[in-house]
């Protein structure tokens, strides 16, 4: 297959994507129906996802990811090529963007008020993100919060939601008409599917929001909702652990993280029912948050 060249307009960035893998092109069209275009003035990143060459191409087909001819990851099974591209885009932004303080967190907004959900893998963050995004909240990001230094302003970086393992079937039962990617099997995260966010998130993908709360979520089976208010020292430690470039951003990064924990409500929550957690977020967090 010849190389297919397209452009993903994902404010605040633009990616040029070259691929010779048909499944990657198909998934791009499936997941990014409005962001995928045939031309761009000035892409920020030049990415290639291509099939491996040589004998291996026939014995055990693989996909390779390159960013400006740099290859940061080992090749993966060809069936996981689209997931490789998604992780590659994350890698580009997380390692190269110094205009923002970047926090590993989902970001969702309602009435102009945004909540950061920083969480390690396995905490149910993406399942929570998917539910909220399809139930009246606007998704700004599933993976990384782009905070303008010295402020509480978070910019959208709208991308698909990365669902893993059991959450895949759950999300497909919740949102049968949503747009899902093909499945990437047996990745280092298990089975992975990407879910395209609802139209309102794409339509407002240049509209920033003000962060009013930081919620560290943790899913636990058959548990009542447990809410713990964090003091600012606890919140700082937890947020700093999830800030990709905080230590590189110097005093500006430090002051931005300090500002966030001082200006926001900070909670740790353990939940089973997403709807119960959502009610707490609306009735007890957003209602009393000023912007």
């Amino acid at each position: 297959m010849a190389f297919d060249v397209s452009y993903l307009h994902l404010p605040p960035f633009c990616f040029e994507i070259q691929t010779d893998i048909a499944a990657v092109s198909a998934n791009l069209r499936q997941i990014y129906p409005s962001a995928l275009q045939q031309e761009a003035e000035a892409p920020d990143y030049f990415l290639t996802v291509k099939s491996g060459s040589g004998l291996r191409k026939h014995l055990r087909p693989q996909a390779r990811f390159l960013s400006d001819q740099q290859e940061p990851f080992k090749p993966v099974e060809i069936g996981n090529a689209f997931a490789l591209l998604e992780w590659g885009m994350n890698w580009c932004v997380a390692t190269q963007e110094m205009r923002f303080v970047i926090v590993h967190a989902a970001v969702l907004e309602k009435d102009g008020k945004a909540i950061l959900f920083p969480a390690p893998p396995g905490s149910g963050k993406s399942t929570l993100t998917a539910w909220l995004a399809f139930n009246g909240w606007r998704l700004l990001s599933d993976e990384m919060a782009l905070i303008l230094p010295g402020s509480q302003t978070v910019l959208p970086f709208v991308r698909p939601i990365c669902l893993k393992n059991k959450s895949i079937d759950l999300a497909k039962s919740w949102f049968p008409n949503a747009r899902f990617s093909s499945i990437a099997k047996n990745t280092h995260k298990g089975d992975v599917v990407h879910l395209s966010p609802p139209a309102n998130s794409w339509q407002q993908n240049t509209v920033p929001a003000q962060v009013v709360a930081i919620v560290f979520p943790k899913y636990a089976k058959d548990q009542p909702l447990q809410i713990t208010a964090l003091n600012q020292a606890q919140a700082f430690m937890s947020l700093a652990e999830n800030a990709f470039n905080f230590s590189l951003a110097g005093a500006e990064g430090f002051n931005t993280v300090v500002r966030l924990v001082e200006k926001c409500q900070n909670y740790e929550v353990t939940y089973t029912q997403v709807s119960e957690l959502a009610e707490f977020l609306v009735e007890d967090v957003l209602r009393y948050a000023d912007i």
């Binding site: 700082f236 430690m237 924990v261």
Partner: peptide, 26 residues
């Protein structure tokens, strides 16, 4: 070293501007 006493008096945070290391004391 930058330091900042948190508003709720739960602690003070310190930041090494050269290495990016942080320390939080209660």
């Amino acid at each position: 070293v930058l330091s900042h006493s948190l508003q709720d008096e739960s602690g003070t945070v310190f930041f090494n501007i050269y290495s990016g290391e942080t320390l939080v004391l209660g």
